[in-house]
Structures are given as C-alpha cells and as structure tokens.
Amino acid sequence: MKTFTALITGATSGIGKATAQLFAKNNIQLIICGRRKNRLIELEKELSQYTKVTTLQFDVSNKQEVFSAIKSIPTEFKNIDILINNAGNAHGLNTIQDGSLDDWDAMLDINVKGLLYVSKAIIPTMIKNNNGFIVNIGSIAGKEVYPNGNVYCASKHAVNALNKAMRIDLNKYNIRVSGIHPGAVETEFSEVRFKGDVDKAKKVYEGYKPLKAEDIADIIHFVVTRPYHVNIEDLVVYPTAQASATILNKA
C-alpha cells in the first residue's frame, strides 16, 4: 500500500498543527513547515512515533527561503502527494482609511504571495508525477466582506480565485485542487489579529461554541482521502452558531 507524503505550511499551531497530528496518526508521511524552530522540533518529536517526519523552517512570504527550503527536502520526502496551503494571518481590524500599510503588506505577502511561492515550488513535481492534491485553506472572508475586514477579505478573496484558477490550469495533469473556507475557528488567529491582546482575542469566541482546529483537520483529512476520481472542490464550514461572517447567535 502506498504511503502518501504531505507538506503542510503553518504547521506549528492551529489548523496546520491539528492536520499534521491527524495525518500522522493515519500514517501519512509529513513535511511540517513553520517559522518557529522550537515548535517544529517539539511537533516532529510528537509525530515521529506515528510516521516519518521532516521539518522545514522558513517564512512563506520570503521567496528565497521558500525555494531554498523546498529544494533541501530529503530524497525520501520529495515526491509530495498532498500540499496543504494553510499558512495565513490577519493583522489588525481597521477601516480602510485607518489601516496600517505594514499590516496590509503582511497579509498580502503571507496569504497570497506565500501561497503562490510554495505552490510554484511544489507543482512541478506533481505535474511530473501526473498526480497530486492541493488544498488551499481560505476563509469565509474569501466569500463575503465584513466591516473593517477590507484587506484581509481581499487577500482571502484572492485565495478563493487562485483555488479556482489552479483547478483549471492543473486539470490536464490529473491534479486535484480543493478550497476549504472556515468561519469562526478558535485558534491563535485572533491573538495575531489583535497583536497579542489575549483579552480582546478571547472575546471573539465568547457566548457561542466556535469551531476547533481539529474540526477543520477532520474535514481536510476527509477531503484528501476520497477516491481519486472524487474532488471536493469548494467547501464552506461554519460553527452551528454562525450564519454568515457577521451573524452569530451569541448567548
């Protein structure tokens, strides 16, 4: 039976970490990527009891780091079957007129350009092998726009468009492409958005039961393990309490 190899960006926390943990327990060989070396080392140690694991430390927004790191992948991991483009961030929650240029750069560099750099580095191997599966982690912000979300929403709308374009361009190479767009998921996401303000981040998830990273990991695993003739091309998932980007049934 073939052992699949998956590369996961943003694997040191949240959805990426939960996906790596679930993949490992299902004997999927892993390349876990992130910026924080200590977290990568800890996660590698945890997951190595289940499967073969290697780590890559780089920033997806740094073009040179991306291509250098992926070029360094050990031979036994080079035939990547599954790419999970998970790395992404939100910075700030301001009106367009009050937005920070640095925040805008960070979101576009990570959410859009980072996804493109990693995909560009890995797609040639998938084309050569005439198979592969790319899963792009988007957001409900890529489906609708909400107050003060402007540039973050724009970046995730770009992910949504790139997901569709990838599927068209790679169709003749037998490569599956899927977009998964979560609503409210309780991770470090809001801490990053509010620049380390833990109290403000906690309030985002008060009064209702948000999704957990493990919920999205379970969906990702389901999507990538369908028979090869099946491609779940676009999936939006909310917690039950959420009806749209702005409508939440809070106690």
Rank of each mutant, 00 (worst) to 15 (best):
F222T: 13
A184K: 04
N86D: 08
S155C: 05
Y228I: 12
V135L: 10
F222R: 08
A20Y: 03
S119Q: 04
D59E: 10
E76F: 12
N160Q: 10
P210G: 09
R35V: 06
I122T: 08
T246A: 08
N129E: 14
L162G: 00
V237K: 05
P147V: 11
L83C: 08
I28S: 01
L83I: 13
A141E: 07
D59Q: 08
I216F: 09
E42H: 14
E65W: 09
P74Q: 14
D197W: 13
R193W: 03
F4H: 14
F4I: 04
T3C: 04
K195M: 13
D199H: 12
V145I: 10
V135Y: 00
K202V: 14
D199A: 13
E186C: 14
L101S: 08
R226F: 07
A106Q: 06
E188V: 05
A24V: 06
H157Y: 12
Y50K: 09
K45G: 14
K2D: 09
I175G: 05
L162E: 00
D218C: 06
T3E: 14
F133W: 11
I122M: 08
G207D: 10
P239K: 07
I137D: 00
S68L: 12
P147Q: 09
K120F: 10
Y152P: 04
F4K: 14
E206T: 07
N249T: 09
D215N: 13
N94T: 15
V159T: 04
C33T: 14
I122F: 05
V223N: 03
V236E: 13
G14F: 01
F77S: 13
Y238A: 05
I84S: 03
E42L: 15
G34R: 02
P147K: 11
N79D: 15
A165I: 06
T240R: 08
T12N: 11
D234L: 02
G149C: 09
E188L: 02
K25L: 04
Q57K: 15
A6T: 10
E42W: 06
